[in-house]
Write a protein that binds this DNA or RNA. Sequence first.
DNA 1: CTGAAAGCGCTTACAG
DNA 2: CTGAAAGCGCTTACAG
Lengths: 357, 357
Amino acid sequence: MTRKRHATATDVARLAGVSQSAVSRAFTPGASIAEETRARVAEAARQLGYRPNAIARSLTTRRSRIIGVAASYLQNHFYPDVLEALSRGLQARGYQMLLFMPDAGRHADPQLQEVLAWRVDALILASTTLSSALADQCQAAGIPVLLFNRTSRAPSVSSVTGENLRGGRLIAEFLVASGHRRLGFLAGIENSSTSRDRESGFCGWLQENGHPPPLREVGLYQFEEAAAAARRLLARPDRPDAIFCGNDHMATAVAEVARHEFGLRIPRDLSLVGFDDTGPARWPSFSLTSFSQPVQPMVDATVALVCEMIEDPATPTRHEVVRGELVVRGSARMPPEGCVSLAEQLVWRPVRNDITG
Amino acid sequence: MTRKRHATATDVARLAGVSQSAVSRAFTPGASIAEETRARVAEAARQLGYRPNAIARSLTTRRSRIIGVAASYLQNHFYPDVLEALSRGLQARGYQMLLFMPDAGRHADPQLQEVLAWRVDALILASTTLSSALADQCQAAGIPVLLFNRTSRAPSVSSVTGENLRGGRLIAEFLVASGHRRLGFLAGIENSSTSRDRESGFCGWLQENGHPPPLREVGLYQFEEAAAAARRLLARPDRPDAIFCGNDHMATAVAEVARHEFGLRIPRDLSLVGFDDTGPARWPSFSLTSFSQPVQPMVDATVALVCEMIEDPATPTRHEVVRGELVVRGSARMPPEGCVSLAEQLVWRPVRNDITG
DNA sequence: CTGAAAGCGCTTACAG
DNA sequence: CTGAAAGCGCTTACAG
């Protein structure tokens, strides 16, 4: 049994009694073709089960209408949600998604070469970065690159992120306002921009307001690593009474360890705050207070920006920051004031004397 | 700023002082080319940042080395895990993954047309099916189709699944052995083969052994739907004291509702059993007893089978069923006997007089 | 509105 | 081992 050949435009042309160019036009929206011709072609195509070959089309148009997407950390619920929204958004704009999954904590470089061979129209890297060599290569080849939930040290790569810095600051203020003084911070991947920004927001606010730096552990944005870090943190004689976890995924790990291994009650014995506001963190069992990174707005911004970059290669580098809220639930002691209802949620909006905050 | 052109084989040939064919050979493993020529080409390619264009290659070879992958229900942790394993497996065999996400509970048909335009070498559909019209179209075009965690009513489409039927039967036996008599079943998508098979295994065993059928609700494999179903089930005067949930994802929803809305203790007031053995279900808070669908073996079988189908179009239809175990944890009352340790886990291996079971 | 023809960037017999 | 040439299946000026 040999592999069957797909019908080609030439086959259809022969059957419809028109030229091959006419067949092509019949499948090109806006092409100049008589309605009757189009109908004849459509009928012939139907009979033969013809569909234009996207590979051949891409070769001639030099636009693949494929976008390379990198994603890692899919155990963190945030990313499956992002992937679904991204798939929908790109599909709606007529793009396909070539997905690859770099190893967690590493550059996307190795697999990227394979993806670039496909002459993707753009690259979206979620929770990964690329080496600056690769960034240069993409730049030289004119391939737009967009980082999602990361920024690059090379400032010329555009990005879409949440409010990592403001979130970190607000969480510090929130925990202090709740009366906590023995704070802990659980870092994600240490050289990821999100972890660094959240930490520097958190520690920055503490320092500026005369508080000592938090105890610190590293959870690498992974469940098991975070659980191990929690064990170290909670076993200390001076264990923290509040922990800011670099994301919700790690916060759930910490909650599990705190309750089931240390017998702690949350938030009575330990306050927990996360980042992302997704997935299990919202379930009653965790009811996590968390700074939100709203998936749909972030993905909308990503899709819009990436399309703009494709359409106009001269689009300047942009770093879009999508607004979030400190969503207040039950995992952290509440401050005496500042919690307001917003869209059926409780969020924290501290009243301040100063303008900046 | 106009879009830069990628260097082509012809550019490289010119620089290296060889023919364009030589350049092609230099990038074709196993092609007959002098080592010195290859080196000259490699150097020229490096200078120009040349990478063979996969689109052009696919057009001539008529093999895209792209596999179309459909996945839905990414909120269910099982699928992100599957996606990661699949990505790794396909990558290792030199395939790229064109991902699309059909709407939950629907056929993959609409987006499939777009994917087929890319002349994918095969199609893997996870948690979806395709219409029989589409199945025929793929068959006619010689495109291998593989269903993952589903079977098709059209028996000619190959599949890889877990032991849905045996799992359902075993869970019935397990719950009855634990002394439960008021059973409930929470269905997933009713016309999905997994849900039907699990249910018929469960109900089949009950019937064969003289037990009444379980109370029944539908959760559509979605968290919120499952929570709503749990509310209906648990509000009944004759509420079940054990529920077999069509998968772990729904089981966690039921656990949340049972505990936080009905104040039930698990397993004292209610036993819960799931299916999949993944994700949050394993966390101490849920500690779900669940029939496993081991991701890696299932994905290994999928990758092996799909490659075989690509290599040899005459590969006959196959329905691979990957062995699972009833993993015993704390969410369901334990039967007096039959639990054995296996690979650091407790699994249920009932002792039987009869041979079949 | 339509067709003939060039060209997209490769691979692969074929002849040497 | 190497090069010239055909061909993969389209799109798109160009001329009519």
